[in-house]
Amino acid sequence: MNLIHFYRQQFLELISQFEPNWEENRNYRFGFRWNSYANSSFKEIFQMTQFPDEPLYLVYTIELPEKYKRTNIGEVVKNVSSSYELSLYLFSDKILLTSCVSIESLQQTTLGYVNQARGEIVDLVFSAIQM
């Protein structure tokens, strides 16, 4: 079993116990990807991606509706300090906030990473709304 399959199996076991709302996207071609619609305000995405000669990366994403463009979320993301690589992507109808970590820097389980990244991103969203 290679590394990406080990972490996929770990994630599957953890979500079956603690967050069964994740659905695997079997059409994702660059590793593994799951979607969650448990929160009615936003969509969550978690993916494990590995390219040849690159380490395995875990990426957690929250998809926010267009109305968040009227906040200062870009400034908040730009000025925050995180142990993960944070990115913001603007589209015409949505905003994607992503948190990425190399498996080489991972210090918890896959679901532990998702929960920590979720917490950081949700804090950013609330900070932008309050300002």
Rank of each mutant, 00 (worst) to 15 (best):
Q130G: 03
S102A: 06
Q130R: 09
S82C: 06
Y89D: 12
F18N: 14
K78S: 07
K43I: 13
T98Q: 12
R8T: 02
V77E: 07
V101C: 03
N115H: 03
I121N: 02
F32T: 04
S36A: 09
L97W: 03
L12P: 07
K94R: 15
P52E: 02
I15Y: 02
Y68R: 08
E104L: 06
R29N: 11
S102K: 13
G119I: 04
T110I: 08
E104S: 08
G31W: 07
Q108I: 13
V125D: 02
L56Q: 06
I62D: 06
M1F: 02
T49S: 15
A128D: 14
N72Y: 03
Y28W: 06
K67W: 05
F42H: 15
S105H: 13
S92Y: 08
A128K: 14
I62A: 09
P65H: 15
N115D: 00
S102T: 15
D93Q: 10
Q47N: 08
A38M: 07
Q107R: 09
S99I: 07
N115L: 08
Q130K: 10
P55M: 07
G31P: 02
F42W: 14
E66L: 11
A38R: 08
E66I: 03
S92W: 08
L58W: 01
S81A: 12
Q116P: 07
V77R: 07
S40T: 11
S83G: 09
V101K: 06
M131L: 11
D123H: 06
E24G: 03
T110M: 02
I129R: 09
C100D: 11
N39I: 06
T110L: 04
A128T: 03
K43E: 12
G31Q: 11
L124S: 08
N21C: 12
E23H: 09
Y89A: 15
C100I: 14
E75G: 11
W34V: 00
F11S: 01
V77M: 01
V76N: 15
R29M: 10
F51S: 10
L64H: 01
Q116D: 13
S40C: 10
K43N: 05
R26Q: 13
P65E: 13
F30S: 14
M48E: 09
V76T: 02
S92F: 11
W34L: 00
V59E: 07
F30Q: 13
T109R: 01
Q108C: 10
I45P: 04
F11R: 08
I95P: 00
P65I: 06
L3A: 12
L64Q: 04
W34I: 00
Y57N: 07
L124K: 11
Y7A: 00
I15L: 01
E19N: 12
V77I: 01
L3K: 05
